[in-house]
Nucleic acid binder design. Structure first.
Length: 854
DNA sequence: AGCACGCCGACT
DNA sequence: GTCGGCGTGCTC
């Protein structure tokens, strides 16, 4: 007998283990490691993943139930990914099911639906009596005649409804007969009604009604000519079809022309069009031509990088590289050619890019080189589109996957190369469970495939840079010795020897002293003016973080805050209301200060809108494209704005972080940073690093082509080392200084962190549990190794955001070194606290290697 | 996470 | 005397 070990879709501690199931004969051959299955679990059927096949079961054979169904013809996960999920749940302390589900597209996440229908043979209330199942009222011993009567009526009406409607979703039935839940339960118990449960994929293979115009345009024209003058609606439709002459969704057509379906139907009868169900249109890049690009001749530095990586690819050994290349040094071409080498050897490649820089330009370059060998995965795709791209990978129809963080789980089986571009980006860390870092996952996967990992960046994260050394500031990087974990390849020259742009730092304090209260310094003002004259373009960066649009009263200093979270509300111009980013609370924009009734309440935080306004005042007629969350939520809007800017339909591209990454416009010769220190003031030990990275990235947008570039950085703290080093494009000096600071203060990369956050409605409960938890951890730390503790525990302290959704938040920080048993200790201690935590409904979340310390 | 089983207060 | 409150405990 073969048994399957199944992880079921219940993310809780008690069920976080495999359950044994029998594989029934009819499913033999369909159940593999990685299969998605439906299994009976207690009273219901749940989705689960097969993580093992065994000849023997661990429990009494009598208790073991059979697998009910197999969801896919081919398992969505490979054995390698199943194994990886175990590693993830151990490394990041999450449930196995959470790790498994992170690896499949959202479309495959289970949706459970329950349906109620009348018992078999029951076709009317009378027949229910005949079937002898209508005795419930008397059986309960309810002697009250009147109540019995009304209950009978209710039963009849429910039964009639269910019989008429066929299977009804349980929740719908309960909604329809509100307050009759008990009765319905009784009817289920007595057998008049039966309930069935099904597992559905979140994605319904959606068929949509689609209008196909008559192929022959002339027939349409002929009909149009004969149309009576009062048939305006029909005329609208036909005009539309003549103009577009391609299939269109019926719903879209109706909305577009504001008409009812009957008009279209009558045209269908006349043979002018056909309405039928079609698979929803789902190739996001369908019909787009990608200009094929040929490999370019490599510069000497590119060649060195290529040769090193190629050697390991050919030898099929796992290694991790840090490809540190200044902006414009041509990292992408190295990626492309090493990928080519990988494909030539019959292996596959994964390319990760930050979501924000997964621009059409980027996709074009890969599609241009590798054509339909490329699958693209990013959040702008609909769930269905993403599922389709994912299926191409699983089916082996493509060999290159390019995408954001989760693309690291691309279900390839012969991975040769994994590239992580802009490896320093914090978006590679998932902030929800499983709180994995794509970089670590990449290295783990690469080990399993003997694949090469290439981390690319102009401004590598300190953690990565640190690992390219054997020791730094007198501290050995690896306690176990040996060569550095990551090999460093540097590309210090820009392609074609273009110089780095000149960077000027403007001290905004001096501007204020000189009487300039505008947000543009004189320097930046005249630089923009010059560009307008020369018809060159400008990119302006406004760092939104720390600059967000809160509301403050200038009379009394009142700041509008969320009543449920300790955070200020953000002003949204579009809806003219104030919203909380953490809990979604919204209120109307105040006209007077709620506190002192003053009218001097205003929206602070010069958002991009404010900058745009001021630009318009300073330079009448200036054409500005503004890119921020407000203007880029719509699908494809991102692309639209960039195309407009490329076509020189605007003089200035103004935006948040998203304008800093990866864009490449030939006529941009000026980059301005409105305020460089907004990030610096955040309570985050990485603030300096983030600032340096952002400034370096955005400076790299200027002068990438024949025209020389100029960068103006405005700041209130221009002497800060991260700003100074950035202005000189001097990563090495920055990194050494920053590392010195980290070592002194005991921060990564000299240690690693685990952030434990506890939340509860009442502070005293939190203080108590927090202290107890920290102390228990400290005891274990001391006990683990004699002399020096194996890890340190800080806190508990209130979290930087002390309250979210009416729950207070406290946190502890664990500092440890690679080889310590800190994670196991945290896991064990949390398990031992379970009995103290659960009854009080205290929530505890663990973040291993946190990127944000909130 | 559900859902059932199981022991104490407002009703007929 | 019952209905039903939600406190433990289990799910192959």
């Amino acid at each position: 007998m073969t048994y399957a070990k199944v992880i079921v879709d219940v993310p809780s501690k008690e069920t976080n283990r495999p359950y044994d199931y029998v594989i029934p004969p009819k499913l033999s051959g369909w159940v593999e490691i990685g299969s998605r299955v439906g299994v009976p679990f207690g009273p219901r059927i749940l989705q689960g993943f097969v993580v093992g096949l065994h000849q023997e079961a661990e429990v009494d054979a009598a208790r073991i139930k059979p697998i009910a169904e197999v969801s896919d013809s081919e398992p969505p996960l490979t054995p390698e990914l199943v194994k990886l999920s175990r590693w993830m749940s151990k490394t990041y302390l999450c449930h196995d099911i959470t790790a498994l589900q992170a690896m499949i597209p959202g479309a495959l996440k289970a949706k459970y639906e329950r349906y109620i229908q009348a018992a078999e043979g029951v076709t009317s209330p009378q027949s229910a009596v005949e079937h002898g199942v209508f005795a419930g009222g008397e059986m309960t011993g309810n002697g009250q005649g009147i109540l019995f009567e009304s209950e009978t009526l209710e039963r009849e009406s429910i039964l009639r409804y269910v019989i008429a409607k066929g299977p009804v979703k349980t929740e719908q039935l309960l909604l329809k007969f509100e307050g009759q839940a008990t009765l319905i339960k009784q009817m289920l118990l007595s057998g008049q009604l039966t309930e069935a449960q099904v597992i559905k994929d979140r994605l319904s293979q959606k068929k949509v009604l689609t209008v196909y115009p008559n192929e022959n345009k002339n027939e349409i024209r002929a009909y149009l000519d004969k149309l009576p003058a009062n048939a305006k609606r029909q005329k609208d439709v036909l005009d539309y079809l003549l103009l577009h002459h391609e299939p269109v969704k019926l719903a879209d057509l109706l909305a577009e022309l504001d008409l009812s379906a009957s008009t279209v139907k009558s045209l269908a009868e006349k043979g002018m069009l056909i309405i039928r169900e079609a698979d929803e249109f789902r190739n996001p890049y369908e019909g787009r031509d990608f200009t094929p690009t040929l490999p370019m001749l490599l510069t000497p530095q590119q060649q060195i990088a290529y040769d090193a990586i190629r050697q390991d690819l050919d030898d099929r050994i796992h290694r991790t590289y840090l490809l540190q290349g200044v902006t414009g040094s041509g990292k992408t071409e190295v990626y492309l050619q090493t990928i080519q080498r990988t494909l030539d050897a019959g292996r596959e490649a994964i390319v990760l890019v930050p979501e924000i820089s997964l621009t059409p330009q980027m996709v074009e370059r890969f599609k241009g080189r590798f054509g339909d060998q490329v699958a693209v995965l990013h959040s702008r795709l609909s769930q269905g589109e993403r599922y389709d791209e994912w299926r191409k990978i699983r089916a082996g129809q493509v060999t290159v996957a390019i995408g954001a963080r989760s693309a690291i789980f691309a279900p390839f089986t012969k991975i040769g190369l994994i590239i992580i571009d802009e490896e320093h980006e914090s978006s590679y860390k998932q902030e929800e469970s499983p709180k994995y870092h794509a970089k670590r996952v990449a290295i783990e996967r690469a080990c399993a495939h003997d694949a090469v990992v290439v981390l690319g960046s102009a401004t590598p994260s300190l953690e990565t840079f640190y690992q390219t050394k054997s020791d730094l500031h007198g501290v050995p990087v690896r306690l176990s010795g040996g060569e550095p974990a990551i090999r460093l390849i540097t590309m210090s020259e820009r392609v074609a020897g273009r110089p780095m742009p000149e960077v000027k730092i403007v001290d905004l304090r001096e501007e204020l002293k000189a009487g300039n209260r505008s947000m543009f310094s004189r320097e930046l003002y005249s630089a923009i003016e010059t560009r307008l004259h020369k018809k060159e373009q400008t990119v302006l960066l406004l760092n939104r973080r720390g600059y967000s649009t809160f509301v403050m009263c200038r009379s009394c200093g009142f700041v509008a805050g969320c009543p449920h979270c300790d955070i200020s509300l953000t002003y949204h111009q579009r809806s003219r209301n104030l919203r909380c980013h953490y809990c979604g609370y919204a209120e109307r924009e105040p006209e007077v200060c709620p506190d002192c009734k003053s009218e001097h309440i205003r929206f602070f935080g010069t958002g991009t809108q404010k900058v745009e306004e001021e630009l318009g005042k300073l330079f009448p007629g200036i054409r500005v494209i503004r890119m921020d969350v407000d203007t880029t939520t719509e699908k494809g809007s991102h692309e639209k704005w960039l195309t407009q800017f490329r076509n020189k339909e605007a003089d200035v591209l103004l935006g948040t972080q998203m304008v800093a990454k990866g864009l490449d416009f030939p006529d941009v010769t000026l980059v301005g940073v409105i305020a460089a220190d907004t990030v610096l003031n955040l309570p985050d030990f990485r603030a300096g690093e983030k600032t340096f990275q952002l400034l370096t990235q955005v400076a790299g947008r200027a002068g990438r082509h024949h025209l020389p570039g100029e960068v103006v950085i405005q700041s209130y703290s221009p002497e800060h080392y991260s700003i100074e080093h950035a202005s000189r494009h001097d990563y090495d000096s920055f990194v050494m200084q920053e590392l010195g600071m980290r070592k002194e203060r005991g921060y990564p990369p000299y240690c690693r962190l685990i952030l434990i956050t506890m939340s509860h409605e009442h502070i005293p409960v939190l203080v108590q549990i927090g202290e107890a938890l920290a102390n228990t951890l400290r005891e274990r730390a001391g006990a683990a190794r004699e002399g020096e503790p194996s890890f340190e525990v800080m806190g508990p302290v209130a979290s930087p955001i002390p309250r979210i959704k009416d729950r207070y938040r406290f946190q502890c920080m664990v500092k440890y070194r690679e080889e310590s048993a800190a994670i196991e200790a945290v896991k064990a201690v949390l398990a031992s606290f379970e009995s103290r935590v659960k009854p009080h409904k205290i929530q505890i979340s663990v973040d291993v290697d946190p990127q944000i310390l909130m």
